Simulated scan of single mutants.
Amino acid sequence: MFGGFTAGVVGTVIGYPLDTIKTRMQTGNAGGGGILSVAKRIVSQEGVSGLYKGIGPPLLSLSILNTLNFTSYNHFKRVFGGSNDSLSGIFWCSMAGVVAGPIASAVSTPEHLLKTQMQIDNTSPKPKYTGGSLNALRSISATHGFRAVYLGHASNTVRESCFLGIYFGCYEFCRSCLPDWKVAVPVAGGLAGAAGWVGSYPLDCIKANIQGSLGVEGRGILETGKDILRERGIKGLYSGLGPSLMRAFLVSGTRFSAYEAGVAFMKDSGM
Rank of each mutant, 00 (worst) to 15 (best):
L222D: 12
T143C: 03
L60Q: 05
F76A: 09
M118D: 01
D85H: 14
K267D: 13
C205R: 14
T224N: 10
I221F: 15
K235T: 11
F249E: 07
G242E: 13
G220K: 10
S44T: 06
V149Q: 02
G132L: 02
T116G: 08
N209V: 15
G89N: 07
V43D: 03
I55T: 03
N156A: 09
A261D: 11
N29W: 05
K126P: 05
C170I: 07
D121L: 08
K40A: 13
G132N: 01
Q117R: 14
V198H: 04
R147C: 02
D227P: 10
G152L: 04
V263Q: 10
G11K: 06
E231I: 06
I206V: 15
Y16P: 04
N74V: 13
G212R: 10
D121F: 07
E46L: 09
L203G: 12
W197E: 14
F173M: 04
W92N: 14
G253W: 00
C174E: 05
L87K: 12
S108Y: 11
G253H: 03
Y171H: 02
D227K: 13
G240F: 04
H75M: 15
V216R: 15
G101L: 08
S37F: 07
V251D: 10
S124R: 14
G199C: 08
T109D: 09
V198S: 01
L164D: 01
G3T: 01
E111I: 11
S83G: 12
I120S: 05
A261V: 05
C174I: 01
G28D: 08
S139A: 13
I42D: 00
E231T: 10
M95L: 15
I221L: 15
E231D: 14
A136W: 00
Y201W: 14
A194M: 15
L62M: 14
A7L: 02
V183N: 06
G50H: 06
F80R: 12
A7R: 03
T143W: 01
